[in-house]
C-alpha cells in the first residue's frame, strides 16, 4: 500500500519523455501486428504502467489500454473522486473509473475494431479481466506481449536514471541511519524508514537479516527479535515509482566490521565491465576480501519493478548490462556471512 509522497514534477518526469516511450512502444506494436496493447497494474506489479504513464496505483488495480493510435486510457475501480487525484499525479493518459475496468477497456477495443490484442504477461493477467475481453470483443485474440514489451523496456532513459539517482541516494541514507548501539532489531531498523519517507520515498520496505550466522533471510518488523553477532539491513525503496535496493552487513566484532566495511566499499565500486562470466567477474572483484557464495542481479522486467534477471547459477536471461541494475551479493568473510546490495550502472 503506497502511502509515501506521490506527486508529479514536470522537471523530473517531462511529458515528452513519456511520449517518446510510447512512440517506441507503438513501433514495436506495429511490428508485432498488435491492434492494441493491454497492461495490468497493481502495487506489486506496477512497473510497466508506471513506465508509460508515471503512475502506480496506491491501492486496488488498473488496466492501461494502449491503442495503436490516440490517447492511452487508464481504467481503475477506484472512486470517481480518486480519479481527480490520479489525473493530478499521472502525466500521460486519460483516467476513467468504473467498477468493471475490463468492460470499459473492451468497449474501447470494440470501438477501435481491435482483434489482435497484445497482453503483457498474458499467463499472469487476471482471468476475470481476460474473460470479459474475450466475451465482449468480437473476434478478440489475446497474444502474449511479454517479449515485445521487453524489447522497448530493457533499457533505461535519462528520466528513469534521474529518478534512480534520487532513489539510490535515499536508500543509502536510509541504510546508513541504522541504530548500531542497540541489541534489538526493531530499534536497529527504526530510523531507516523515517529517513526514507522524510526524504520523499513513495514506498520503503526496511527489512533485517537479524542473525546472519543462522540465516540470510531478511524479515519484516513483526518477525524481528534480538540481533546476532552479525546482521544486515536491507532497504527496498521507490522514489516516484523508480525502485532500488541497498543492503549492508554489520558485525559486533570490530575487526570483522572492518572487513565488512571494506567489502561494502568494494561493492560500491563495482563497475559493469565484462559481464559475460558474472560469477568469475564478481569473485575477482571481491578477491582478497571474501569468497563469493551467491549473487543475484535485478532489473525492472515487465510489470515487476525489480525481478531477478541473473544469478550465480548462471542464468542471465533478459539481463541488460547497459541498464542500471541492483546487485545483491553474499560473501564468506573470515568464516562469517556477509550480504550487500547496491544499485550499479547509473
Amino acid at each position: 500500500m503506497r502511502r509515501g509522497l506521490m506527486a508529479w514534477d514536470q522537471a523530473e518526469v517531462p511529458k515528452s519523455a513519456l511520449e517518446q516511450r510510447l512512440a517506441v512502444l507503438r513501433a514495436v506494436m506495429k511490428d508485432e501486428g498488435f491492434d492494441a496493447l493491454v497492461l495490468y497494474t497493481n502495487i506489486a506489479r506496477g512497473a510497466s504502467v508506471w513506465w508509460l504513464t508515471g503512475f502506480t496505483p496506491y491501492w486496488n488495480e488498473g488496466l492501461l489500454h494502449v491503442p495503436a493510435q490516440g490517447e492511452m486510457v487508464f481504467v481503475t475501480a477506484l472512486s470517481k473522486r480518486v480519479a481527480e487525484w490520479i489525473e493530478s499525479v499521472m502525466p500521460a493518459g486519460r483516467v476513467v473509473t468504473t467498477p468493471k475496468p475490463a468492460a470499459l477497456i473492451s468497449a474501447g477495443l470494440v470501438k477501435d475494431g481491435a482483434k489482435r490484442i497484445g497482453v503483457l504477461e498474458l499467463d499472469d493477467f487476471p482471468a476475470g479481466h481476460a474473460k470479459i475481453i474475450l466475451e465482449t470483443v468480437p473476434g478478440a485474440q489475446l497474444v502474449d506481449a511479454t517479449f515485445a514489451f521487453a524489447r522497448v523496456r530493457s533499457g533505461s532513459d535519462a528520466v528513469e536514471r534521474g529518478l534512480l539517482l534520487k532513489a539510490d541516494a535515499l536508500a543509502r541514507a536510509s541504510c546508513a541511519a541504522v541504530e548500531l548501539s542497540t541489541p534489538d532489531a526493531r530499534a536497529f531498523m527504526a530510523p531507516c524508514e523515517t529517513v526514507a519517507r522524510l526524504g520523499g520515498a513513495e514506498e520503503c520496505f526496511a527489512l533485517a537479516s537479524t542473525d546472519l550466522g543462522a540465516s540470510r533471510a531478511a524479515v519484516r518488523t513483526e518477525a524481528m527479535g534480538a540481533l546476532g553477532a552479525t546482521f544486515a539491513a536491507r532497504i527496498s525503496l521507490a522514489y516516484k515509482g523508480a525502485w532500488t535496493r541497498h543492503a549492508r552487513s554489520f558485525a559486533r566484532d570490530e575487526k570483522l566490521q572492518e572487513a565488512f566495511d571494506a567489502a561494502h566499499a568494494r561493492l560500491m565500486n563495482f563497475k559493469p565491465t565484462d559481464m559475460l562470466n558474472l560469477s568469475a567477474v564478481l569473485a575477482k572483484h571481491f578477491e582478497g576480501l571474501g569468497d563469493l557464495v551467491d549473487f543475484t542481479i535485478e532489473q525492472p522486467r515487465g510489470s515487476y519493478p525489480l525481478a531477478a534477471v541473473a544469478n550465480h547459477a548462471g542464468n542471465a536471461e533478459g539481463f541488460n548490462p547497459a541498464a542500471p541494475f541492483v546487485l545483491d551479493v553474499e560473501l564468506q568473510i573470515k568464516g562469517a556471512r556477509w550480504l550487500g546490495a547496491h544499485l550499479v550502472g547509473l
Binding site: 498474458l122 499467463d123 499472469d124 493477467f125 487476471p126 482471468a127 476475470g128 479481466h129 481476460a130 489475446l142
Partner: peptide, 11 residues
Amino acid sequence: PYHLLPYGLLH
C-alpha cells in the same frame, strides 16, 4: 479469488 487468478492457470 477467482477473478484475480492468473489467466494461464485456467487456460
